[in-house]
Structures are given as C-alpha cells and as structure tokens.
Amino acid sequence: MKKNDIILLLCVLLLCSVIFVVVFFAMGNSGDTAVVTVDGEEYARLPLEEDTELLISTERGTNLLVIEDGKAFIKEASCPDKVCVRTGAATEIRTVVCLPNRVTVTVEKGE
C-alpha cells in the first residue's frame, strides 16, 4: 500500500512536469504576431520571432514592413507624410497607421 502511494505521488509529479513542459512550449511557440490590415481587411500575419520584410503594396501605395529583433515597424513608405515611419514599432496597444495608404500594423499577443 505504501509503495502504491509513492507510485501515485510519482505519477502525479510526472503529470505535473509533463503539463508544465507542454504549456511552457505551447506558449513559447505561439508567440506574438504582427497583424497587417489594408482598408480594414486583414492583409498578413507574421510572427515577430522571425526577422523578415514585407512590402505592402496596394493601389494607394507601398509600405515596407520590417520585423527585426521581435519588433515590427514601417521602414519606408510611399506616402507623403511618413507618419507611419515616425510612429516606430507597433505594440499590443500602439497601432501603426498609414492614413494615405490605409495600412495598419498591430501586435497580437500569443496565447
């Protein structure tokens, strides 16, 4: 009986660690995502983990989205005011907006 109790304990401990590992990695894998919309419609979703560039090209103009070191920002734009470039990196609460090209970039937290 005493032996079985210890086995049960060990099983529970094992279950704990398995769940911990699964949860830990699941959260790690579904990291933050940059979400790009054009004129209100979703245009692209890109993980912030991977450094990349995306040329957002529409009939209104172009915006170059850069993902670097976990940050998403507009590096270049065809619009005259460059407000989107000045805004800097998008965060969960800071949406980067290019008004002339109707482009937005925002960040969604991983779950």
Partner: peptide, 24 residues
Amino acid sequence: MKKICRAGAAVLLCAVCLSICSCS
C-alpha cells in the same frame, strides 16, 4: 502515512488543476 500521501497527492492534483486554470 497513507493519509499523508493521499493528502499530498490531492494537493498536487489541485496544483495541477490550478496551473491549467491560470493558463486559460
């Protein structure tokens, strides 16, 4: 001893449940 072990197991199970709940 048996009771203590069972109590321990129960506590651990609760902890597991809580950790799952807190994630969601």
